[in-house]
């Protein structure tokens, strides 16, 4: 029954106590070639620009780049970990503004953070804006999620 108890401790965050301006815990995700190959297999997006350096450079990219959908998928974990239930996400959208370039030697670090920008008391929902940066670049634009709180 430890699993059930574990699930219960991760109950969905209550609307009470959530306010506009609240910052969500930030996180940094390290991206390397192995991670991109893993995402390529999991997502079935096997475009070689995400894992074949020679191909990526041939089509004019500086190096292999991360899947935009990988970055989008990693970014929402900031929200789902805060809200306590991945099923609470009602809407999630973003623009892909800059690629995450992933050099072989160093990989890349992507920093994610989130801020509550709106709350709906009647529906008990909150809007969270997410920022995703890699070095000086904002890699996602207008990334935002609407979550259903308890």
């Amino acid at each position: 029954m430890t699993d059930l108890a574990g699930g219960a401790t991760r109950a969905r965050r209550s609307f009470e106590g959530v306010s506009v301006g609240e910052s969500l815990p930030a996180k940094t995700v390290h991206v390397d070639r192995a991670r991109l190959v893993q995402y390529a297999g999991a997502s079935l997006d096997r475009n070689p620009i995400h894992w074949d350096e020679r191909f990526a450079k041939h089509v004019g990219l500086p190096d292999v780049i991360a899947h935009g959908m990988f970055t989008m998928g990693a970014a929402i974990t900031v929200v789902t970990e805060w809200v306590g239930d991945a099923g609470a996400v009602l809407r999630y959208g973003t623009r892909f503004t800059k690629p995450v370039v992933v050099p072989y030697e160093t990989g890349a670090d992507v920093q994610f953070s989130g801020t509550v920008t709106a709350v709906d008391e009647t529906a008990r929902q909150a809007t969270v804006e997410i920022t995703a940066t890699c070095g000086p670049d904002k890699v996602l634009g207008r990334a935002a999620a609407v979550v259903q709180l308890a």
């Binding site: 699993d3 059930l4 574990g6 699930g7 219960a8 991760r10 969905r12 995700v29 991670r35 893993q38 995402y39 297999g41 999991a42 997502s43 959908m69 990988f70 989008m72 998928g73 990693a74 929402i76 974990t77 789902t80 970990e81 239930d85 991945a86 099923g87 996400v89 999630y92 999620a145």
Partner: peptide, 30 residues
């Protein structure tokens, strides 16, 4: 879920998902 770093047990643990009222494990939002 593993590929995007999503650690919610509702993605991998059927009992945890059902404890929240889901029929079975649920997919990450993307």
């Amino acid at each position: 879920a593993e590929a995007v770093g999503a650690t919610d047990p509702a993605h991998t643990d059927r009992a945890a998902a059902q404890a929240r009222g889901y029929r079975d494990v649920i997919a990450p939002p993307t």
